[in-house]
């Protein structure tokens, strides 16, 4: 298999370039893309990428594999390989620090903007706050986000306005707290989001849904936020 790697070391290279490396895949075993990267790194230690849990829950190794964002550790080579070739690039739309490592500050900043924590102005009870299973179910499909940035960095609206449009990941978390029966800051949360950019730059392109490695649906969450904002305005 031919692996074409995006390489860039700001200390050594004037510009990024693609490096082609031939990789011998072990027979009868379907490696994950991360395994391939680890093999490559054993041969060339200068290759840089993030990785941690290697099981799709920490969100470190989001990258672009043959044109589609995903997590390298849970993407089998067989699923993305095209014509015996695998092109690996950093997540698009974010500044590259080195090789496959991107600067995620803007992404995190958008997450921080949505007040991603529970707010409850009532004194806490001696035990837990009660929540019905039905209310708890409303958080399914929202709280599982791993902040890998596959969605936001696949979103043309986020590419265009990464400083003003919250992006799918941040908005998914915005809705996770709007939907929580224990949260009392709904009005304040909506007021923060009520401008032409934060939410309404979403054009329903749904790249986020197509790439989310956890099978989550930010577009649906954004739809719910839009509805809440419209109800608030009327």
């Amino acid at each position: 298999m031919l692996v074409s790697l995006y390489r860039y070391n700001p200390e050594a290279d004037n510009a990024p370039f693609m490096q082609d490396v031939e990789v011998e895949l072990p027979k009868g075993k379907d490696l994950m893309v991360l395994d391939v990267l680890n093999l490559l790194k054993e041969k060339d230690v200068t290759l840089s990428y993030r990785r941690s849990c290697r099981e799709g829950v920490c969100g470190s190794d989001g990258m672009n594999m043959n044109g589609k964002n995903g997590l390298a550790c849970i993407t089998p080579v067989s699923q993305v390989i095209k014509k015996d070739k695998l092109v690996l690039r950093p997540l698009p739309g974010l500044p590259v620090i080195r090789d496959l490592v991107v600067d995620m500050s803007l992404f995190y900043k958008q997450y921080e903007k949505v007040m991603p924590y529970l707010v409850n102005d009532q004194p806490a009870p001696a035990i837990e706050r009660l929540q019905t299973p039905e209310d708890r179910e409303k958080l399914d499909g929202l709280y599982e986000c791993i902040l890998c940035a596959c969605c936001s960095s696949a979103c043309p609206s986020f590419w265009w306005n990464p400083d003003k449009f919250i992006g799918p990941a941040g908005l998914l978390q915005a809705y996770r707290f709007l939907a929580d029966s224990r949260d009392t800051a709904q009005a304040e949360r909506l007021a923060e989001l009520d401008d032409p950019f934060s939410v309404f730059r979403c054009r329903g392109i749904m790249n986020c849904v197509s790439v989310c490695p956890k099978g989550l649906n930010p577009t649906r969450a954004i739809g719910h936020i839009r509805n809440l904002l419209l109800q608030r305005a009327t």
Binding site: Y117, L118, N120, A124, A126, I127, E128, R129, L130, Q131, T132, P133, D135, R136, L139, Y143, F177, D180, R182, D183
Partner: peptide, 23 residues
Amino acid sequence: GPQAVFELEHMGLPFSRTEQGRI
């Protein structure tokens, strides 16, 4: 322990629930 777990719940940890609404 119970106090530490209730604190986590108050911070917003989305525990699964029983029919009574408890953790």
